[in-house]
Design a protein around this nucleic acid. Structure first.
Length: 99
DNA sequence: CTCGTGACTTACG
DNA sequence: ACGTAAGCCACGA
């Protein structure tokens, strides 16, 4: 199975109300290709089934987003999932999902 | 095979 | 806190 498919699969496992980081995502597939995670999201081959907005930076900041509205929409979607965002940062202690 | 790319991370000054 | 640099890895051309 291709790495990209594994990443997508894992990302879909993130429960509602939780988020994950590029770092954790890479670790979950036994890889250190942190940068590639974002690369995959941007390419967005399966955007319909992949909640890329649940992927954030290791320090809890939002990171980036190429969808409609960009960062703003990403934050909105996260809030919709019940996640509290403080000054563009997410409380990883509460919302980080580990694989 | 090599090269460029990327929504990252860590370390250092 | 901020900018810079280096490390990292899969993928397409």
């Amino acid at each position: 199975m291709e790495i990209s498919q594994k990443v997508y699969s894992n990302l879909r496992k993130v429960p509602k109300g939780k988020v994950t980081t590029y770092k954790e995502l890479a670790k979950s597939i036994n890889s250190k290709a942190y940068r590639y995670m974002g690369y995959l999201m941007k390419h967005n081959k399966d955007s319909i089934n992949i909640p890329c907005y649940k992927v954030i930076n290791s320090d809890g900041s939002i990171g980036n987003y190429s969808g409609n509205g960009g960062i703003k929409t990403k934050i909105k979607l996260l809030k919709k999932d019940g996640i509290k965002i403080k000054n563009k940062k997410i409380d990883l202690k509460k919302y980080l999902h580990k694989f």
